[in-house]
Design a binder for these strands. Sequence first.
DNA 1: ATAATATATGAACATATATTCATATTATAA
DNA 2: TTATAATATGAATATATGTTCATATATTAT
Lengths: 102, 102
Amino acid sequence: MSDENYQPLDEETLFLVSQTFKALADPTRIRILHLLFNQELSVSNIAEQLNLNQSNVSHQLRFLKNLRLVKYRRDGKTIYYSQDDEHVMKILQQSIDHATHH
Amino acid sequence: MSDENYQPLDEETLFLVSQTFKALADPTRIRILHLLFNQELSVSNIAEQLNLNQSNVSHQLRFLKNLRLVKYRRDGKTIYYSQDDEHVMKILQQSIDHATHH
DNA sequence: ATAATATATGAACATATATTCATATTATAA
DNA sequence: TTATAATATGAATATATGTTCATATATTAT
């Protein structure tokens, strides 16, 4: 049974989709995004809660920011990060639920 | 506004979720899974359609099989692969649609 | 101005990953 | 049996990735 309606994926779509999933393919980034589900947090706060060093968190946040999965705002010396892609966060939530219930 | 209901992710969940997304984080594997959306295909057929060498396809299929994202059946010398995780395929489909409609 | 604090950045490094090549395995056909 | 075809496997390799360290930048306070 072959599929007559098959359409090959174009390069651009392929790149975008793989990049997005790459963001979710690392435990550290998952933990960060999971923390940001319902709250806005500073870099140091994230680092503290997840027991990660500041530089590491900053690098990962840059990665997520470049993909527009998170956004930030500055308040004095502190920079607060929060989620910025409902679709991806929903997928992450679903997958965590799916994995949790066996 | 801090989140009182926050529950840290356990190691096992974290590993499972990241592994699953890792499967979707590579263009070659996305193309393979995309081909398998509505059909069952042999290794050589996949390799031919996607212009990949046989060994590469075989390695990637093993990866996907280990995660139970695809299953296979043998018919003589030929082995046919098909999808085996509706949830993940649905997520992939959604993400492709999302990326396509810019 | 200097000091202190929060975050970002680049280099370095170790590890992970994708792909290819050569070869092994499995099944069929002659 | 030998030959052929389809797939799997392991080693090799080049590239990508995650983390740390040292340091730079930005903001506020003194």
